[in-house]
Simulated scan of single mutants.
Amino acid sequence: MLRFLVRRTLGALVILLIVSMITYALFFAIPADPARLYCGKTCTPENLALIRHDMGFDKAWPVQFWNWLSTIFTGGTFNGVHCSAPCFGYSFAKQELVGGILADRFPTTLSLTVGSAVIFLVFGIGTGMLAARKQGKATDKIASSASLLASSMQIYVAGPLALWLLCYSTNLLELPKYVPFTEDPLGWAGGLLVPWIVLSLIWTANYTRMTRSSMVEQLSEDYVRTARAKGMSGSSVFMRYAWRGAMGTIVTVFGIDLGVLLGGAIITETTFSLQGLGELAIHSFRDSDLSLLVGITVVAATLIVFFNIIVDAAYALIDPRIRLA
């Protein structure tokens, strides 16, 4: 297991390096000039050259990338502000350290992701297991039809509809907002309830269909039929064998989904005006903020890679037939 984790960690570092290099290269393919945007309308050539020098844009992009990479391990000083390692650079658009900006926005995305994940896992897996247990019956047909309808919905359609129905029209729930959990737990849950409902509605449908199909497939396996032939009860076979066999697929997909959601739910946060990593990514691209854009990309990629490693390591615990060779 230790050799596997070391090997995957080294591979993850290579992936993150490549992702950050590609982000840097693509940024310089954008026709917009960040230095000119910061210089203003009354910009002189001298001021423009000075700004480019301060931002480091007067150097070739490989040199800029190396300087950024070195600050992660050694730290640096930007506009008189010291940034300790690990340092992700300085946002000239916001006049702040990138690490501080990411730390301020990440709790919003984390709260949005964790709350919705708990809901769609409980209801999605529960409904999928019930549909598989009642395969071919009315319960199965209703659950399958409802999940198919819900999975075809998009956040930018379901979000405004939920806001109109639950907030503006009936005032049943308060408008989405982020309140730190440590300050007001009830306010934290109440402010994120509408986004949680919308996200869980869409993702529950996906996990219902996935759980059902995995369970139905496992129930048709030879070892399940053998267990039934030996006289084991249906409930024991269902939970001890079929459910455990289906967990591999569910855990795999959930690990990827969780990493993507934590990396920044761009459409969700924009729809509900939540200031998380996704909303921050849009503004950093609009402002041509290279340091902030690369920081968000690296954080998102790190989360996705990290959860993939966790999922792979969990395979051996879930299914003894799988070995981490």
Rank of each mutant, 00 (worst) to 15 (best):
L2Y: 04
R3F: 12
R3I: 11
F4E: 12
F4G: 08
L10D: 07
G11S: 07
L16Y: 11
L16W: 12
L16D: 12
L17T: 13
V19R: 02
V19M: 05
M21S: 15
Y24D: 07
A35R: 08
A35N: 06
R36G: 05
L37A: 02
Y38S: 14
Y38M: 15
G40H: 08
G40C: 07
K41S: 02
C43A: 02
L48W: 10
H53E: 15
H53P: 09
D54C: 13
M55G: 04
M55Y: 09
K59A: 15
P62R: 07
P62G: 06
V63M: 14
F65W: 15
W66A: 08
T71C: 00
T77R: 14
T77P: 10
N79A: 02
H82E: 13
A85L: 08
Q95V: 05
G99N: 15
R105A: 15
F106N: 08
T108D: 00
T113L: 05
G115W: 09
G115T: 08
S116N: 01
G126N: 06
A132S: 10
K134E: 13
G136A: 15
A138I: 11
A138M: 09
D140F: 08
K141D: 04
I142G: 02
S147A: 15
Y156L: 13
A162N: 02
L163K: 12
W164G: 01
L165S: 06
L173Y: 02
P180T: 07
P180E: 09
D184V: 05
P185T: 09
P185A: 08
L186Y: 01
G187I: 10
G187V: 08
A189M: 14
A189L: 15
A189P: 04
G190S: 10
P195E: 03
L199G: 00
M210E: 00
S214Y: 04
M215L: 15
Y223R: 12
V224Q: 11
V224A: 14
T226Q: 11
A227G: 10
S233C: 05
M239I: 01
R244L: 05
I256P: 02
I256W: 09
D257E: 03
G259T: 01
G263N: 01
G264A: 04
T268N: 03
T268L: 06
T270I: 06
T271Y: 11
L274N: 00
A281G: 03
L293F: 12
A301C: 11
I309C: 09
I309M: 14
A313V: 08
Y315F: 15
L317Y: 15
R321E: 08
